[in-house]
């Protein structure tokens, strides 16, 4: 298990679950308040936000692992 995965498992995993549940709740809330048409815009926001998050997550992992490799090579 890499350092990134350990850090992710201890905190990020739960945030990921909460994030998914919160999106579903927001979609239901928007549907109740403004109807089906508004839900379409929430779906667009969902796609955009999660695409950005996926790219950020991938970059953060690479950056974190590069820093870890650099630190371990310096200590050796």
């Amino acid at each position: 298990m890499s350092e990134f995965e350990i850090q992710f498992a201890t905190r990020g995993g739960l945030y990921l679950i909460i994030h998914a549940i919160a999106w579903v709740c927001v979609i239901f809330l928007v549907d109740f308040l403004w109807g089906d048409t508004a839900v379409q815009y929430v779906l667009i926001a969902f796609v955009i936000v999660n695409s950005i998050l996926a790219v950020w997550f991938s970059k953060a992992r690479k950056r974190y692992e590069a820093l870890q490799n650099q630190a371990s090579s310096t200590s050796n």
Binding site: L14, I21, A22, C25, V26, F28, L29, D31, F32
Partner: peptide
């Protein structure tokens, strides 16, 4: 049901955070 579920879900998420 939509409103109740949204309030319950968001409330639970808020408490957990």
């Amino acid at each position: 049901a939509k409103l109740t579920f949204a309030i319950l879900g968001l409330g639970a998420c808020g408490l957990v955070v």
